[in-house]
């Protein structure tokens, strides 16, 4: 699977990572699955509910996640993935990310934020046996705001 993002959506994730720095940001990717790609329709920033160690941990509040899932359904969109930032750390999954991943079939996007500036942004999917993440291609979709 590839992940299709517009330049604006890519920038929105990067901006959220910069705004949250030095804490981790997190959010939901809404959209749908097409032929060989998950296509993002909307990036929904979420609150990092982890108050103990927000510089290197994030949690969704489950009720807020339920609400986003419900609102997406009402608008004909699906939850196709999630994103979070790694402040001052590379944009690749940690062992902790692996241990706390949900199911295969989502895109797991990570943006690295180095000294407050967003750097690499990568997307991964979880292997079927949950043993590791596999990097997936990110392709740029046409901007939604262009004619």
């Amino acid at each position: 699977m590839a992940l299709r993002l517009t330049a604006e959506q890519h920038a929105a994730i990067a901006r959220h990572g910069e705004q949250a720095y030095p804490h981790e940001c997190c959010g939901v990717l809404l959209g749908g699955a097409g032929a060989g790609a998950r296509e993002v329709a909307e990036v929904v920033p979420m609150r990092n509910a982890n108050t103990e160690s927000p510089r290197n941990r994030f949690d969704f509040d489950p009720k807020e996640h339920l609400a986003v899932q419900r609102q997406a359904r009402e608008r004909g969109l699906d939850v196709i993935g999630f994103y979070h930032s790694h402040p001052d750390h590379p944009a690749r999954p940690s062992q902790y990310d692996l241990e706390h991943a949900a199911w295969p079939g989502y895109s797991y996007v990570i943006v690295s934020v180095a000294e407050g500036r967003a750097a690499a942004l990568n997307s991964f999917e979880l292997a079927d046996d949950r043993s590791h993440f596999i990097q997936e291609e990110i392709t740029e979709a046409a901007s939604l705001s262009r004619p």
């Binding site: 994030f58 339920l66 979070h84 750390h89």
Partner: peptide
């Protein structure tokens, strides 16, 4: 609803 959590290793700077 899956729990969604994660985070970078404990190295900063």
């Amino acid at each position: 609803v899956p729990s969604i959590a994660g985070g970078a290793p404990r190295a900063f700077g």
